[in-house]
Design a protein around this nucleic acid. Structure first.
Lengths: 117, 117
DNA sequence: GATGTCACTTGCAAAACGCAACTAACACTT
DNA sequence: AAGTGTTAGTTGCGTTTTGCAAGTGACATC
């Protein structure tokens, strides 16, 4: 995508500024790894959008896709270090929402670790 | 808009999750107030989008619109306290961009205060 | 009276989104 | 071997949102 300006806010929004990308990153931070797990989030993302967002995250170096060894034709999507560095940003978003938007609460739980994570 | 879930991240994205809203808030934090000033940002927002985003910010209580006393038919858009509380979130976005995206830098300057601001 | 500025609105084409249906690859059951 | 189920998508298509250019109305200035 072409940059709109050199502003770090504008450039970050070029990458993450939509309604779904950060939610996928949120789920990755909570330990979710497979297509099915992301699709099971309470927001009900459409599968074509999810597919697109996962590909973009990989293309931009925020996540990487690796085959799950024990299950054939299944891939795990995991955050790279660059992707993990979004934790603070997401915390800020979450904190602002909790403080300023009524009826928001944290309900999603981290997933227990699995082999290879 | 209907909430997608009770997650504070999802709800915040319902409000701010697009490519333009946070840039307008950024400009407001830098002291910009009028339609023309927002339209002059380096990202070249289209006027119909700008008009829509200003109305949404007012509707959601993040900004308020007041007539400029000295200039007829001109309005100033200013952040409410709720809107100003986005400063930390925007700082996180900016910090992440500066650290992780090449060729980003802070170039925009705060505007000198004017009467009534 | 003509021109310019500001804050929009309108029209229209292009892109993104949302939903449902479909497919390919493999596993599991009978 | 055939049928069923699960996973991870893709495809089609109608709706919504965006982007761009042009137009409008109110006022100010020349």
């Amino acid at each position: 995508m072409n940059k709109r300006s050199c502003c770090p806010i504008a450039c970050t929004l070029d990458l993450l500024g939509d309604k779904w990308t950060l939610l996928v990153v949120r789920d990755m931070l909570l330990g979710r790894q497979t297509f099915k797990e992301f699709a099971a989030a309470p927001e009900k993302i459409a599968t074509n959008i999810l597919s697109d967002r996962l590909n973009r995250l990989v293309a931009s170096g925020l996540a990487e896709k690796t085959p799950l060894p024990d299950q054939p034709n299944r891939d795990a999507y995991r955050l790279t270090d660059k992707g993990k560095s979004l934790r603070k940003l997401i915390k800020s978003v979450s904190d602002w929402g909790l403080k300023n938007l009524p009826e928001t609460e944290i309900r999603m739980k981290p997933i227990k670790k699995r082999r290879g994570s």
